[in-house]
Design a protein around this nucleic acid. Structure first.
Lengths: 343, 343
DNA sequence: CTGAAAGCGCTTACAG
DNA sequence: CTGAAAGCGCTTACAG
């Protein structure tokens, strides 16, 4: 509770020496250091962060900004908790703390970020749910604040990011479906401007082209990123004049709603229509027939993202000379039965 | 980016006046205030939080400490995101920000809290996952830091808390099962010291007693709070010399594993054994037969918890004169088919 | 209504 | 190796 002044008085030495002892400076007598450390422990003294921050110009805290709308909250899974855990294990190597900065639902994500930056609550940011057009990049570049993004953007500036391999998954899925004889393959992406939808669509498109299949805008279904959105997608798919024989989803929870709609219509995934989901996760494991999807190690992704961020920070970049500037995180194919029998 | 000094120079007035204008003090000429506000907007000036905090002795940030082990991370659902959203809507009334403080997996939750308190990163705490014996309460009381707990504890000190009505759910479940003719009712609780397990068990016990049924320790199954734990519970239940006819779960995800084990043994919930889960949530909705459980409004809980915290803070308690000191949050019965036919 | 000055709790050149 | 002092960016009595 006491400030450094009280501690110094108690030890009958100057606050400067107390500070140096506590911060591991080398020009302190070992005997003195021991006394200081013992007294700090005893009195429960830890330096006040505001004082340190003000003097040092840094907080030793990293902020992970999340930005959930009502839909994302309702559907949230273990993605962020898992990511957070692995980020922390990287940051704790350097005595940095991680805080999550949840942008309030009602507040604009850009205004929120501006406020957090100006307040200097953290030294660096991890931003997530990146949009195709996302003013946050420009702003952070200009503010010269270290940051990395989980997700890409069409922003002109170069910045560091890590992202799941959406284009790889889309391409692999198309390849596989074409190999099974499908030609009329639909894709379901979020109706929002979130960047991953664009990337996924590009991967889908490129792969179709490689196979000489014409891209058909009618087969691109845009819905909410949720179970309900999957149901909606099912409705739209079945209303098409010529029904697709296969569908690729950019978000696995959509599979739950899609299965429901198909069941209502007496259709079975894998028999009547091929379905490929996205990430393997607890909530889709129960689906029957088992969802064909992709597995991904969130903890390794978190480690990569964390090291990438540290490599952009002057105080830590020497520890991470080999950190990449961008990182496309691969997923492993996890075949189920929803994409039909192999041939 | 500029500090208050730059802004004051730019306007050619003193920093004191700039500060007063920005902070809405009344003794500022309206004309001056307008100029200051305009210039701040233009230059993107927002007060540095470290400077403010140091001077004011507060940060205007509230911390929500979470404390997830690997099991909790793997199984995490929308509970915290939903809670966070509603907490924020309360705090934003007073221009307070909420940050989540995720205690790293490897770190002791008590040491982590001590560090966060000492660093003065936040003005007040919300702590969660409270244990039966939880040193954090004593510590926070002594530190005289405002806090509320989501969950109770056996701590001797009085403190403010909100908690789900575990005892109510346990009692209601026993009542209902007894009314259906069950006498041999098992209960599954977490093997950890987390307080909710104790409360649930007390509710179960009290209700049995009211019905004149002897408490049987053999029927208390302790497992991990997860799907896997539910499977484990299924194994243990079926190994009992005399099999229970009903089972009450304190955590709904256990139902998924329990269903799987029962299915493996050719048993059907609701026909061969009655099952009552806990909270209704997306991941258990698919269970067949439908899980009998309880519904709960997380957003109202968050609002209640947030107001309770503000009522403990000197600067805000006048706004919440009627906030309760403790809050047992009710859940609404959501009947399914897993507890057998009504009679 | 405004300005000059003190001081919040630290860390860090600097002097000895 | 240690101490005295400056100063990080603010807010707020105090004087005028």
């Amino acid at each position: 509770m006491a400030g450094i002044r009280k501690l110094a008085e108690h030890l009958d030495i100057s606050i400067g020496t107390v500070s140096r002892a506590l911060n591991g400076k080398h020009d302190v007598n070992e005997e003195t250091r021991k006394r200081v450390l013992a007294a700090a422990e005893e009195l429960g003294y830890v330096a006040n962060q505001s004082g340190r921050s003000l003097r040092q110009g840094k907080t030793n805290v990293i902020g992970l900004m999340t930005d959930w709308n009502a839909e994302a909250i309702e559907n949230s899974d273990n993605f962020f908790p898992a990511l957070t855990a692995s980020l922390q294990s990287v940051f704790s190597r350097h005595k940095l703390d991680l805080v999550m900065l949840p942008c309030p639902n009602e507040e604009d994500r850009f205004e929120y970020l501006k406020r957090m930056v100006a307040r200097h609550i953290v030294d660096a940011f991890i931003i997530t749910s990146t949009r195709r057009n996302d003013k946050r990049f420009d702003f952070l570049m200009k503010a010269k604040i270290p940051f990395v993004a989980l997700g890409r953007s069409a922003s002109a500036h170069p910045f560091r990011w890590a992202d799941l391999d959406f284009e790889g998954v889309a391409g692999f899925s198309v390849d596989r479906l074409v190999a099974k004889g499908h030609r009329r393959i639909a894709v379901v992406v979020p109706s929002s401007d979130i960047n991953l939808g664009h990337v996924f669509l590009e991967g889908y498109r490129a792969s179709l082209q490689r196979h000489g299949i014409a891209f058909n805008d009618e087969l691109v279904i845009r819905v909410g990123a949720s179970e309900q959105g999957g149901y909606q997608a099912g409705c739209e798919l079945l209303q098409l004049a010529e029904r697709p024989t296969a569908v690729i989803l950019v978000y696995e929870l959509m599979a739950i709603g899609l299965y429901r709609k198909l069941e209502e219509e007496g259709l079975l995934p894998g028999r009547d229509i091929a379905v490929i989901g996205f990430r393997e996760q607890p909530r889709t494991k129960f689906l029957q027939p088992r969802l064909t999807c992709f597995r991904c190690s969130l903890s390794d992704l978190g480690t990569g993202l964390g090291e990438m961020l540290l490599s952009t920070m002057k105080a830590y970049n020497r520890f991470y000379p080999d950190a990449p500037e961008t990182l496309i995180w691969p997923l492993t194919f996890a075949p189920g039965e929803s994409d039909g029998p192999d041939r």
